[in-house]
């Protein structure tokens, strides 16, 4: 077989365009704490040294990075964005993030949310739909979100924090036993305490001063922004064959949350 040797030289040309003098802080890319957010004047100064095209290009790269990560529902750390994409453009980072968020919103219908302002972690929320509900029941993804909804529901009905043993007992009543491998969910405990936690639907926290250590669950940041409490209450009412209004406190909370969140969404739409 004849093999013509043609070495690929067309490496991403954006790498070559990068001005070397722009690097502002932090030599250690892994350590986000080294990064201090540039001030507005620093950003403006940084923008002066760049062409609009360069800023566009970098914004596009950051945006694609978000899209790819989001496909796996992995929260995105600012440190990783810096290290893998922003690189020498860190002095205009606030401008890049602003443009990225605007484009995600206007073109893709996705909302960029910083769920952890201490560690600077972002997720994308789909503004066009609720997470798949319980009504359509095909495929393992939907079954999983069904389970997730039930767990979120139990937490909501019990006032926000629930010891894990209580969750396991309640699930057992619904024929989901963490001691056994489940046909659809596999290792249920792993799914709930690891996958849902990693996706930020749930938080799984140690209860202080417990020996042996006990954990409790509460809603994770993604659930807070993505999941409708009204829907959750409806689901729980269905399970109890009752009306949502029967739980007056939860009903009130769900509907007050609804009005504030819908305000927030409409104000962010331009």
């Amino acid at each position: 077989m004849s093999q013509r040797k043609r070495v690929s030289t067309s490496q991403s040309s954006s790498q070559n365009k990068r001005p070397a003098s722009l690097s502002l802080t932090a030599t250690n890319d892994d350590d986000d704490s080294m990064f201090t957010l540039p001030s507005t004047s620093q950003v403006l100064k940084g923008l002066e040294n760049l062409t609009e095209e360069q800023v566009y290009q970098k914004t596009a790269e950051v945006l694609q990075y978000f899209l790819v990560r989001d496909q796996k529902k992995i929260p995105i750390r600012r440190a990783d964005i810096m290290k893998h994409v922003v690189k020498d453009y860190r002095n205009i980072y606030p401008e890049i993030i602003k443009r990225t968020a605007r484009t995600l919103d206007q073109v893709f219908g996705l909302k960029l949310v910083e769920i952890d302002t201490k560690n600077h972690t972002y997720i994308l929320i789909n503004k066009l739909e609720e997470p798949e509900g319980m009504t359509s029941s095909s495929g393992p993804a939907n079954l999983k979100s069904g389970l997730l909804f039930v767990v979120l529901g139990l937490i909501f009905m019990k006032g926000g924090f629930v010891r894990e043993n209580l969750i396991w007992n309640l699930l057992k009543k619904l024929h989901v036993d963490i001691g056994q491998k489940h046909n659809d969910f596999g290792d249920v405990k792993k799914l709930i305490t690891e996958e849902f936690v990693r996706q930020r639907y749930l938080e799984y926290v140690k209860i202080p001063h417990t020996e042996p250590v006990e954990h409790e669950f509460c809603w994770g940041q993604r659930a807070d922004v993505e999941v409708s409490k009204v829907k959750i209450l409806e689901l729980m009412a269905q399970l109890h064959k009752d009306r949502p209004e029967s739980w007056s406190q939860q009903y009130k909370e769900a509907h007050s949350a609804l009005s504030t969140s819908s305000q927030a969404t409409s104000s962010s739409q331009r």
């Binding site: 690929s8 067309s10 991403s12 954006s14 990075y65």
Partner: peptide, 14 residues
């Protein structure tokens, strides 16, 4: 598709 480069840059994050 990605039209940024004629190369395979779209895949570089994966």
């Amino acid at each position: 598709v990605n039209v940024a480069e004629t190369d395979i840059s779209r895949m570089s994050s994966d």
